[in-house]
Design a binder for these strands. Structure first.
Lengths: 167, 167
DNA sequence: CCTATATAGTTGAACTCTAAGCTGTTGAGA
DNA sequence: TCTCAACAGCTTAGAGTTCAACTATATAGG
């Protein structure tokens, strides 16, 4: 593959590096805010959020993994820790005995309600306060475009797509 | 603090979640591409890139940390591994004996040249191929805005900034 | 000169993440 | 019914990151 690399031109290079830098500065910051104020990584916070929005504050592990963009493995570890903290409880699944439910406990809900204001404030201060309405609109547009693109596209080049010509 | 939380409205909420999702899909993917094809985390790849662009392919550890958006600690660990692999070499600093230089070795340069095409192709396929010229332009604009904003703003609320009014 | 403080970089422990493999369950087809 | 692939979730091992503490050197003030 990659007989001829489609290198980035000057302009694309700058765009890419700017995006990379902005993204890192922003998410490092939010990560640290949550870790400092709530003692939680953002991935764990998001698990609590998704559970809080689910019917009965309960989701199957797989659904929770999908909705929080976690791998199965990562979710297992995460829920183990959240369960030890008393914020989430695992329940057996009657219909499918392989399965398991994760349920947000009242303590978990309290934890979330206590952590949310600081986090939301950080998102607003670090992201929204910097962007005007137009920029926000396009950011959403770009994000939606990317989500569609990345959901459609296989994560890595499919073997059978290896052609002789550079197409 | 946060007497009154400035919650996100419906629209902002959607924008934020879309951005979060897009960003995660994209960077998880690039991370995996590099790990799979080059056996390197993106952070390590970036260290090689920065060194490759420096005069004499050499930088002080601190400069390298700053330019690659790494913490000092992370960089120490990273360079230790890169050095063990033979891709980077540490050199003493004569002017400031606390300091150290990191230098990209020929092997390191070769490693980078071997890894770059696949990575660049992934960036193009996953990001640029999805966005039209206008979106690319605004993405750069937004990124630059964010970088300026986040560089100006203290990472966390300064104590002395706690005022009685919501000002 | 001497002390205090700041800076450069490293280290170790605790934690998170990923990848691979494992257990047990389900469901389709022979 | 039996078999076997697919699936749900967990576990293990190894690697990366962070935080706090530490070493060593540099610099400023008295």
């Amino acid at each position: 593959m990659t007989a001829d690399t489609r290198w980035l031109d000057e302009d694309e290079q700058r765009t890419w590096r700017a995006f990379l830098t902005a993204q890192r500065l922003l998410f490092d910051r939010l990560e640290r805010q949550l870790q400092r104020d709530a003692g939680l990584p953002h991935a764990y916070y998001e698990i609590l959020v998704r559970l809080s929005e689910a019917p009965d504050r309960t989701l199957r592990m797989s659904q929770l993994a999908d909705s929080s963009l976690s791998s199965r493995s990562r979710l297992s570890h995460a829920v183990a820790r959240l369960e030890a903290a008393g914020w989430v409880r695992r329940r057996a699944c009657a219909e499918d005995r392989r399965g398991a439910f994760a349920e947000l406990t009242p303590d978990g809900m309290a934890k979330l309600e206590e952590s949310a204001p600081g986090h939301v404030e950080a998102v607003r201060a670090d992201l929204f306060d910097a962007l005007d309405r137009d920029q926000q609109r396009v950011l959403r547009d770009i994000s939606d475009t990317l989500i569609a693109h990345l959901s459609d596209t296989a994560a890595w080049p499919v073997e059978s797509d290896t052609r002789a010509d550079a197409g």
